[in-house]
Amino acid sequence: MTRLPSWQLFAICALVWGTTWHAILYQIGHTPPDVGVALRFAVAGLAALVLCRWRGLPLRFSLRDHGLFALQGVFMYGVAYVCVYEAERFLPSGLVAVGYSASPLLTGLGAQMLFGVQVSRRFVWGGVLGVAGVALIFWPEFGKASSGASVGLGALFTVAAVLLSAVGALAASRNRSRGLPFWPALAFGMLYGAAASAVMALVQGHSFALPLVASWWIALLYLALAGSVLTFACYLTLQDRLGPGPSGAVGVMTPLLALVVSMMFENYRPDVLTAIGAAMAVAGNVLMLRLPVRKPLAPKIAGSSPEC
């Protein structure tokens, strides 16, 4: 991935993740959220391990390293995604997307508090503008979800997903700064995330029976290979270059593309508020990316950068 310019990495993440919100619906209609997440990241982790083996990358690590892989994976690929799937059971996907548009702001501020990364005012205002724009796009859905006991539960799952995902992103950034190799960290992290989700499913007595529905299998493969292995490889490479805050700006553009998918496949018709919100979100995104976070200098470790 190091051969690709940042804008291409950003575009891949936004384009693919912008369609995964819709693809998730094909899974939660047939399997419990924790089962769907466990299967998705089990397939993704195994695919990443095969890629590591094919490229001759080392796969033996100390218990301490595996603990760091698990910290990244359980939060970034496990419990955070279970919360996303659960949230989509109670709220329109647009509302969940609005929550995730706050992820760059939370991750950037977390990096400042934990790692001493300096966050500019431009970045903060860009994050606020982006969140406001995405919220404006989905304002009609807020009205539709204004009543009902399930709304509070869906909102709680959304907040939990954003916070847990931010923890995972910060853990991944710290793992890279410690010199842990990119692809093995991705592969083992996804397997640990799958294991955590599987434990949640077993504790609750959920079945792992696989549905005989073509759309479910197509969604699983798309979410695992394109929506997980490819996109997280691009995203974490982008995070190495720009820092954990600005790279999270993908979370602002993704809802905009999810909106396009809804227009194409779900008969959604935008209005004036949509156009204004889209303009605000794009402007906020530009502000966040224009001045990347200044990271403390760290020694370069040979062979630690991802390549493809």
Rank of each mutant, 00 (worst) to 15 (best):
M1P: 12
T2P: 14
L4Q: 11
W7D: 00
W7T: 11
Q8T: 13
L9D: 01
A11N: 00
A11P: 06
L15P: 03
L15W: 03
L15A: 04
V16Y: 12
V16C: 06
W17V: 00
G18W: 09
G18A: 04
T19G: 05
T19M: 07
T20F: 09
W21L: 05
W21P: 09
W21R: 03
H22E: 15
A23C: 00
I24Q: 04
L25P: 13
I28Q: 00
I28H: 12
G29C: 12
H30S: 12
T31K: 07
T31S: 13
T31D: 11
T31V: 14
T31G: 14
D34L: 14
V35Q: 00
V35H: 11
V37W: 01
V37F: 12
L39Y: 06
A42N: 08
A42L: 06
V43A: 09
V43E: 02
A44L: 01
G45M: 04
G45C: 02
G45L: 05
A48F: 01
A48M: 04
L49H: 07
L49E: 02
V50Y: 08
L51I: 15
L51T: 04
L51P: 12
W54N: 07
R55F: 11
G56F: 09
L57P: 07
P58G: 12
R60P: 04
R60Q: 11
L63Q: 13
R64G: 15
D65Q: 03
D65L: 06
D65K: 02
H66D: 07
H66R: 09
H66V: 06
G67V: 08
F69T: 11
A70N: 08
Q72L: 15
G73W: 08
F75Q: 13
F75T: 04
F75L: 11
M76F: 12
V79D: 15
V79W: 13
V79E: 14
A80N: 06
A80C: 06
Y81W: 02
Y81G: 08
V82C: 10
V82H: 02
